[in-house]
Design a protein around this nucleic acid. Structure first.
Length: 487
RNA sequence: GUCCCUAUCGUCUAGAGGCCUAGGACACCGGGUUUUCAUCCCGGCAACACGGGUUCGAAUCCCGUUGGGGAUGCCA
């Protein structure tokens, strides 16, 4: 099934739930890459046929996510296009006639059974028992009359109970299923709205979709879709089923990524301070390989190298460690200006003295942050001196201990007190002078002074930068607190 | 239950019959550089699920077993 002259058209068809699951985002990514790598068109269609699940503002979340991720669609509710409308609820009246056409063709039938209560099919259930009233065998004319008279109904697909169905998937290859295990799925619900399964087929056809990119969970039900296409006499699209993304629950069990299992939404990731580019890069490699050793790619680069045969078949587990590593790589690669801008909203320094000097301070954080939400804790000591024990003055490498620290702090106090040029270089010069006089490693005075002014062993920047930011008054106040503790 | 898919280091993967003593990355563990931490170097640990075939030769092909996942909704 080569798509020789036909332009590739793929679509992303999310349901507006109010958040973007990374599994869905990845589906969008691959649909986008497949289209763009071949100069094709990427369509956004909103699948909101389930009225009970309406969520206010949910479509905005979808637009925002795609925009932020750089997956720009060519057609969609917000962009228009010649195949609109792109929101299924706005297409509601279009589906029933198609279903009725199927009924006329004998490929579907009216079903008047009561709404089934159960959730999923329980173990041991016969797929043909979904309609206990055997509506499938009703006389078509009688059934049509009954439906027309106002009796509530659904329309079910009439599936052959003999033979096999086969199709070829672009990643999983040849799939063959016995028709007998397929159920007469509902096409039109009692509220006259189409089910996802039906709306999908109709819309994909009407929107001229050439490649259906979706999760591997649809592998077994695809024959049902194909029967629909055939009944209509429509061309069946090329299927590109994607390996599932798995997550772990609290017990470590692996299952399809979900709230229980490793829950991740794009919004969550953004809030934690992951970069959208890093997330995209990471999920691109979850189930797909460029078949070489390179791992860092821009979206543009992904477009140019994306190939369907790099897609994997086995499910992949979402690994936060690797995502974080990749995020760190992206953070480090940013320009200092870009990093300052990206980190500012996370820093919590608005309204503090640090706000004005953020551009200068942020770069000190850049090489030591994995995700942006780590910043507040890393700079908390600047806002308030943390409680600390004098034991932390001990450091083997710089040969520091509380006694020596006290000696040095005492020795340097007047110098700092008299220092007019309160800048990092000038402060550092005081420390260097001290090391020279004592013929000791620079690390010694730095250790002592760092702890005195920060209250901790690890800080972004050295004592010079910290003292400059703190300002002379605050720095000296902390300095004296340390001296007091050491007495 | 039934059906479908799947199987290389803990994780993501390369490998499409000899190039494999199985490569890369994350994580982990060492060592070095460094004013702390980190960065950065360097090194290490670690896998072809199992059993049958096919073949001169199999991680690669076939069959089975086992493991894992998915489907079985008037959800998408």
């Amino acid at each position: 099934m080569e798509n020789t002259n036909k332009t590739v058209r793929t679509r992303f068809a999310p349901s507006p739930t109010g958040f973007m699951h990374v599994g869905n985002l990845r589906t969008a990514l691959y649909a986008f890459l497949l289209a763009k790598s071949q100069g094709g068109t990427f369509v956004l269609r909103i699948e909101d046929t389930d009225q009970a699940r309406f969520v206010e503002g949910a479509t905005e979340v979808i637009y925002n996510t795609l925009a932020r991720a750089g997956l720009v669609h060519d057609e969609g509710p917000d962009k228009g296009g010649e195949y609109g409308p792109y929101i299924q609820s706005e297409r509601r009246d279009l589906y029933l006639p198609y279903a009725e056409e199927l009924v006329k063709k004998g490929a579907a039938y009216y079903c008047f059974c009561d709404k089934q209560e159960g959730e999923t099919q329980e173990a041991g259930t016969d797929p043909h028992e979904t309609c206990p009233g055997h509506c499938r065998d009703l006389d078509p004319a009688e059934a049509a009359a009954k439906a027309a008279s106002g009796v509530p109904f659904v329309i079910r697909q009439k599936i052959d109970r003999t033979g096999k169905s086969a199709y070829d998937d672009a990643v999983f290859g040849h799939i063959e299923i016995d028709n007998d295990v397929l159920d007469d799925q509902i096409l039109i619900k009692q509220d006259k709205m189409p089910t996802y399964n039906f709306a999908n087929v109709v819309d994909d056809h009407l929107m001229n979709i050439t490649h259906v990119v979706r999760g591997a969970e649809y592998l077994p039900s695809t024959p049902k879709y194909n029967m629909l296409y055939r009944a209509f006499g429509w061309e069946i699209p090329q299927y590109v089923h994607l390996p599932l993304i798995m997550g772990r629950d609290a017990e470590g069990n692996v299952a399809k990524l979900s709230k229980r299992h490793g829950s991740v939404s794009f919004e969550n990731l953004m809030q934690e301070g992951y970069l959208a580019e890093a997330v995209i890069n990471y999920i691109a490699l979850l189930g797909w390989s460029p078949k070489n050793d390179r791992e860092i790619f821009t979206l543009e680069e992904l477009i140019s190298i994306f190939k369907v045969d790099g897609l994997n078949k086995a499910p992949a587990i979402f690994d936060y460690d690797k995502l974080m590593w990749m995020n760190t790589e992206y953070l480090k690669a940013m320009t200092p200006e870009a990093f300052a801008a990206a980190s500012f909203p996370f820093a919590g320094v608005a309204g503090t003295p640090l706000e004005a000097r953020w551009a200068g301070f942020a770069p000190m954080l850049q090489q030591r942050v994995n995700k942006l939400d780590e910043i507040p804790e890393k700079i908390a000591f600047l806002h308030a001196l943390p409680e600390y024990e004098i034991e932390i003055f001990n450091n083997k490498k710089s040969k520091c201990n509380p006694e020596v620290a006290k000696e040095i702090l005492l020795e340097l106090r007047p110098e700092f007190e008299n220092l007019a040029d309160w800048t990092a270089p000038a402060i550092s010069a005081v420390l260097s002078g001290c090391a020279e006089r004592r013929t000791c490693k620079l690390g010694l005075p730095m250790w002592a002074v760092r702890i005195a002014v920060s209250g901790q062993m690890v800080t972004p920047g050295g004592p010079g930068e910290i003292m400059e930011i703190l300002g002379k008054e605050e720095a000296m106040k902390r300095y004296d607190v340390a001296l007091q503790k050491l007495n």
